[in-house]
Design a protein around this nucleic acid. Structure first.
Lengths: 255, 255
DNA sequence: CCTCGCGTGATTGAATTTGATTATATTATA
DNA sequence: TATAATATAATCAAATTCAATCACGCGAGG
């Protein structure tokens, strides 16, 4: 078996299993440990996989993007929210996603649909979508900022190239007093432009943000069509009544 | 048995088995090792097979594997090219990078400079730059295609938003007969637009591409300012003389 | 008959790949 | 924390493969 064939075989195995140990490859390919190591090094150098202790894994984008560690915080809530949000998805629609981490758990649901067109300002989102869905992905143009989001006037201009059926976005705070707010100017400017060019505006918002007010106004409560939360918040009853049936949680009936 | 018969036989065997060793062919065809090698060299030159260590494989074997064998085998060349190309870099410049893998080894050199502005169509490139440099990175907008490159008419339009001091790009083939060619329409359309909006056009091209012609014309030889190779090619002397001092390798004196 | 060109076989030293060994680094366990 | 188990990187030697070179044989043409 040639080097190249071995490389191919390793990659094939990796695609089937997601990760492998050096030992497993050793027995599978009938070559020495040293050779496997050298192969893995070479494949890693070409960016095909990722060396880890004891073996290798498929190259995951998470490794490239260390700033997304905070994705873990509130991960449960975000997944709960995504499962509710998925009820709004259907095939043959076009969607804006903003660059918040809240949108990422929607990817598996997108994967189940056909003929989806996505426009996003998040490199992370576009990578995930490209990796595990067959959606047509478009990225806004413009400057790349920390956390790998696109923003600035070029990005805002790019938004105007599109019009979508729906839009998912997130915020830093939401309250009956101040509406929907954010601490990220880069996110705000793109989001506000997206809102002008979409039919259905859906806010993804975990309940810890309720009652908080951040520096920047992102939108008024009346501007969004739905607000999806992991649970009905208790610390701002006025907000709940203001949103009325537009507030959606796990227990809501969606018609 | 004549040469041509042997060629045919080798190709036939290869189609049956996908790959063969030199030894196997030796015994099968009752000729010497040296002859088999010469045959394989000839067949590789006409593009019928691919030489690998110990034998040969059909081109199609790595078809379902994302171009990594090629990538690996030329990695050293690409790094050599990048080290030469880095001599063209200096602080406070703006740069286009196309979405070829040849540009990636330039990232460490960018990291050493200050006040660099980069515009690229490659998500991979923008991630690498964001991770290890403090360059201002801009991405073109538009559709995201396989291998995480941006292209399509929106991407081409995005290019017009910029004008840069220099541009680095790559190709699939280069020859005195057909100029600079590519097999990737997605890359070509963006590259050609970039060429209109940059001052200095620098082609990164490993020597294995010399003498080859791909389907699409990317540019004429006269359109580029420099062609950087890992070594002076020997199989197309006309190309070398046509490029003259615009052909740059490790040994060249750059003033 | 000689010589040139061409393809082939053989030889040689260099280059590549590989497996084994050892010392070092990391992780797991008591 | 200390210790054992395991993984790793670095190095070496052996086997294999490669590229370059020379020599031989054969047929065409002078």
């Amino acid at each position: 078996m040639f080097q190249n064939e071995r490389y191919a075989k390793i990659y094939e195995i990796l695609q089937q299993r997601g990760s492998v140990t050096v030992q497993y490859l050793e027995k599978q390919l009938y070559v020495s440990e040293a050779t496997i190591r050298r192969d893995l090094d070479a494949l890693e150098k070409s960016g095909l996989l990722q060396r880890v202790w004891g073996g290798a894994m498929l190259h995951t984008v998470d490794k490239d993007i260390p700033s997304f560690v905070r994705l873990k915080s509130n991960q449960d809530k975000k997944e709960k929210i995504a499962s509710v949000a998925s009820l709004f998805l259907k095939s043959s629609t076009s969607i804006f996603f903003d660059s918040s981490t809240s949108c990422l758990p929607l990817v598996p649901y997108i994967a189940e649909l056909k003929n989806i067109k996505v426009v996003t300002s998040s490199l992370k989102m576009s990578l995930e979508l490209g990796q595990s869905t067959d959606a047509a992905v478009n990225l806004l143009g413009g400057a790349v900022y920390e956390d790998y989001i696109l923003s600035g006037h070029l990005a805002v201009n790019s938004v105007r190239q599109y019009h979508t059926d729906m839009m998912f976005f997130s915020c830093s705070g939401i309250s009956s007093a101040c509406g929907i707010t954010s601490i990220e100017p880069k996110v705000v400017e793109v989001c506000q432009e997206m809102m002008k060019h979409t039919a259905l505006k859906i806010l993804l918002c975990d309940s810890t943000k309720v009652g908080k007010n951040a520096l920047l106004r992102l939108a008024d409560l009346g501007e969004v069509d739905y607000v999806i939360m992991d649970e009905i918040p208790e610390n701002d009853p006025e907000l709940v009544s203001a949103l009325g049936s537009r507030l959606v949680t796990e227990r809501s009936q969606i018609r």
